[in-house]
């Protein structure tokens, strides 16, 4: 399994530092943004699997806005919000907008790692499924092309057989003439 890259967005330097240390120790690639504005700059420039963002941050880009920005870049980026107990309503609102989860402060790291593992699992299953469906699409479109050609060719040959039968059964003409006509038809390239 590939290491996930996590973008940590928090204006509190102590929490930032702690998250960075713990996540790196657990084997994740970690990127840091000091606020929503930095997050907005980093998100389009890097491949990010998960955004871990504080809900309340100074300025007009809070956690909800970071969520919007991330989801706009790719639906595959999962966003986990970190909230104070008092702002649970906003967190629930964020879930409706596509957030993967929210964690209450103070952060319980066991809980955080469980959620990250769950996201990693889903993403790896998704990638597998995408690979499979890609492979299936390729096989299917190749098969479709072959089948289409055969289908049209069979219909042409069928109609030729019908014309040949009509000529051969046509008693108005002497037999040798019917044969010439059939041979003409058969040499006609189509």
């Amino acid at each position: 399994m590939r290491n996930m890259t996590i973008l940590v967005v928090d204006d509190d330097p102590v929490i930032r530092r702690m998250l960075e240390k713990r996540l790196e120790k657990a084997g994740y690639e970690v990127l840091i943004a000091e606020d929503g504005y930095q997050a907005r700059k980093i998100l389009p420039q890097q491949h990010i699997d998960v955004v871990l963002t504080d809900l309340m941050m100074p300025g007009s880009i809070g956690g909800i806005e970071v969520l919007d920005i991330a989801k706009n870049i790719s639906q595959n980026i999962e966003v986990i919000l970190i909230t104070a107990h008092s702002s649970i309503d906003t967190a629930v609102e964020a879930m409706k907008k596509g957030a993967a989860d929210y964690l209450e402060k103070p952060i319980n790291f066991d809980e955080l790692f469980l959620r990250l593992e769950k996201i990693a699992n889903v993403q790896s299953i998704m990638r597998n499924a995408q690979d499979l469906s890609q492979a299936m699409d390729t096989t299917e479109s190749a098969a479709a092309l072959t089948i289409q050609n055969l289908e049209i060719r069979t219909a042409e040959l069928q109609s030729r057989i019908e014309s040949i039968e009509a000529i051969l059964r046509d008693e108005q003409n002497p037999p040798y003439e019917r044969i010439y006509k059939v041979l003409d038809l058969l040499t006609d390239p189509q």
Binding site: A144, I147, Q148, L150, E151, I152, A155
Partner: peptide
């Protein structure tokens, strides 16, 4: 369906091609 065929299934239909579809 793109990988289906009516050959030998229903002679009442004839296939027609338009660009990459039938």
């Amino acid at each position: 369906g793109s990988t289906e065929s009516l050959t030998g299934i229903c002679p009442r239909f004839i296939p027609k091609r338009h660009l990459r579809s039938i």
